[in-house]
Amino acid sequence: MARTATLLVCLLLAITSVVSALDVHGRIQWNDLCPNFGALGASKVLLDAGRLSATVTQNGTFLMRDVVPGTYVLSVSSHDYIFDQLRLEVSDLDSPPKVWSYVLGTPLVSQSSVTLPYPVTFMARHKYKYFVPHESFNLMGMFQNPMMLIAVLTGVMMLGMPYLLKTLDPQMLEEVKDRHASLNGNSNSGQNGHKKSELSMLLNSDEEPKSSSVARLQAGTSPQPRNRSKANKRR
């Protein structure tokens, strides 16, 4: 007896729920991202967590049945596309449902007055790009690297400098030497010139074995003994 009673209640409930529900129409608007049903694939429109769902037909339309009054989130469950989510509000059965745009993570019931047209329209916003391209190797890219450029330039300088110097006018060479020497002398007189001179000296001494006459001339200038003396002192 009790069972029949509960059954009756259930039936009544079912009937009332049937009576006080609304069908929500809508469609997927095809756009450049998602031009047709073939691109979209089998998709569903979900109400909330999928308590109610509607299948998208070939022409993009869908029909969600038996939506009882309330506020819902409508979303499209598609394998390859991201669609906007919408807020759907079914207030009563006589007026059409209201639709708002809805940004995830914001309060659902906002005071926004801008409603979207009904029937509901969804549009693909984004297509998933699953793959990242390989970091491809190209020779140009490798040589565009500044470090690489510096290395190459140094190499070229190292090889080309002697020839360059040879082709220079001897007079001009002398001038350059003089200027270089005076520059060295000036910097030595400066307070923080020590380090700089040491540095240039080191560079010079590095160049020494392979360098041309220029380098040797430089080596003969003042900084060298100083350096040595300093080194001696350290010892």
Binding site: A14, S17, V18, F37, G38, A42, T55, V56, T57, Q58, L63, R65, D66
Partner: peptide
Amino acid sequence: FDLFKGHLLLEKRLHDPLL
């Protein structure tokens, strides 16, 4: 459904599932 592509052409409710 379409025979060869499986596209859903038509969806029609004949009666309420609760009934």
